[in-house]
Design a protein around this nucleic acid. Structure first.
Length: 425
DNA sequence: TCTGGGGTCCTAGGACCC
DNA sequence: TCTGGGGTCCTAGGACCC
């Protein structure tokens, strides 16, 4: 088999870049985007990265530094980012159908069959077109494996010398090793915090070190997943392109609260709301499920608070995707694990045992035939899609919901709401 | 005061079966 | 005295990803 050619396109500082498209004042200024509940910094412009503020930093810890440098801080706006992601992916998919939508801001393309000789030129064209058509800057890496394409992308992004685009195709072993020696081992795809620590203890600090480490050592400490990463760095493709839609194995909906919760009734509202979100997602996947797990926890960071983490699950009698079928079991699980006297800061719902809804699905023995639930669910989904997300909801979700998280500096839904359309004077 | 959310894969070990 | 062997399935926990 001949080598494949993989291309990885990765948006630069994606959330920040989305904000800049609709607010040009943010260009050349330090900008940070926060996580849900305005808690952590999850996206940083290059200016913010240069200040040494790490990914995931709690915003309160860096308050004075952020203020001192006039960093613009925004709440996250997932509706905007999701829509912008779709636009970027659409441009990418105009180059080939062999595309894997890997995350909100990244895609792998298999461009072997495009039969071109100059991959750098193609990559530059891609990058320029995405910038022009969507306003989003991307970096691109090209190589014979996905892991190498990731590494190439890493180099393209971190230095200016490649102009945001780097192809490792036909490079020659020596030249490739020189480049791999410049990639920190922690930046290799598949090597996270724990493995980085372990590898550094053995003097393995770069992608090149890892590539040339004894494979038995890698197998012993990092199982087959580590071996795969190593093979990929050596140019042997082990991770194929996933172009098919894959049914999710579980759906999570969880949030930390805007304030500590002590009452069961508030937790019931939160859990009902999370079940609603998860079931909506389940239906949008065209799937059904029959297990629901609920967890609640206190704030681990508050060492002086007494701590309590609990989770429990329940199986439904049959498969379903209707919110009404999940709320009851979820609440009964919640009541079972709830203990009075703790300050809860987060709850979550996990729906599993998922399968496709098409074809024969064994429903509960006790489900009356011709149930109207499907009609109700689909109408509710349509209304909530057409108007606001919460136009119609179950009463158990609560009305005032004063426990919801903070989102104090959120930009408009520039691309998905007529009311939020940008005005230009 | 203030610390995100949503996923995947792999392995070990226990339950269970014949 | 002496207590098998081999297989599957499930789950929890730990690693990883963005």
């Amino acid at each position: 088999m001949t080598d494949r050619v993989f291309l990885l396109a990765d948006c630069n500082n994606f959330y920040v870049s989305c904000e800049r498209v609709f607010n040009p004042d943010l260009e050349n200024r330090p900008v940070a985007v926060l996580s849900n509940n305005d808690g952590c910094i999850v996206a940083r412009s290059n200016e913010v990265k240069a200040l040494g503020i790490p990914m995931g930093a709690p915003v309160f810890k860096y308050k004075s530094l952020l203020e001192k440098h006039g960093v613009v801080i925004l709440s996250s706006n997932y509706e905007l980012y999701g829509d912008m992601s779709g636009r970027v992916m659409e441009v990418l998919s105009s180059f080939t159908d062999n595309i894997e939508y890997y995350s909100i801001d990244e895609a792998f393309l298999d461009i072997t069959d495009l039969n071109i000789s100059d991959y750098s030129t193609l990559a530059r064209e891609m990058r320029d077109r995405i910038r022009l058509w969507t306003g989003i800057p991307v970096s691109i890496g090209v190589a014979v494996t996905k892991t190498l394409a990731k590494a190439a992308n890493e180099l393209a992004k971190k230095t200016t010398e490649f102009g945001g685009v780097l192809s490792l195709i036909n490079l020659g072993d020596a030249a490739l090793d020189v480049l791999m020696d410049r990639v920190d081992v922690s930046d290799v795809w598949g090597i996270g915090r724990q493995y980085t620590k372990l590898l550094r203890n053995y003097g393995i600090n770069t992608a090149l070190d890892f590539k040339t480490a004894p494979s038995a050592f890698v197998k012993q400490h990092m199982t087959v997943a580590g071996q795969r990463t190593q093979m990929e760095l050596r140019g042997v493709s082990c991770i194929s392109l996933e172009t098919e839609f894959k049914m999710k194995k579980g759906i999570i909906s969880s949030r930390s609260f805007g304030r500590a919760i002590t009452e069961l009734s508030d937790l019931e509202e939160a859990v009902s709301s999370y079940v609603t979100t998860a079931c909506q997602k389940l239906r949008s996947e065209g799937a059904v499920a029959k297990k629901v797990c609920v967890y609640i926890r206190t704030n681990n960071f508050r060492r002086n608070d007494s701590q309590y983490n609990a989770f429990a699950s329940k199986e439904l009698l049959g498969y379903s995707s209707h919110t009404s079928d999940f709320i009851g079991p979820a609440l009964s699980v919640l009541r079972k694990v709830y203990r009075k006297g703790y300050r809860y800061y987060k709850a979550g719902v996990y729906i599993s045992k998922i399968r496709a809804c098409t074809g024969f699905v064994p429903l509960s023995l006790f489900e009356p035939s011709g149930s109207k639930k499907s009609v109700v669910s689909s109408i509710v989904d349509k209304i909530n899609d057409r108007y606001r997300a919460d136009t119609v909801f179950f009463a158990s979700c609560g009305i005032s919901r004063d426990w919801t998280g903070k989102s104090e500096r959120k930009s408009q839904k520039f691309t998905t709401s007529w009311d939020d359309l940008l005005s230009v004077y």
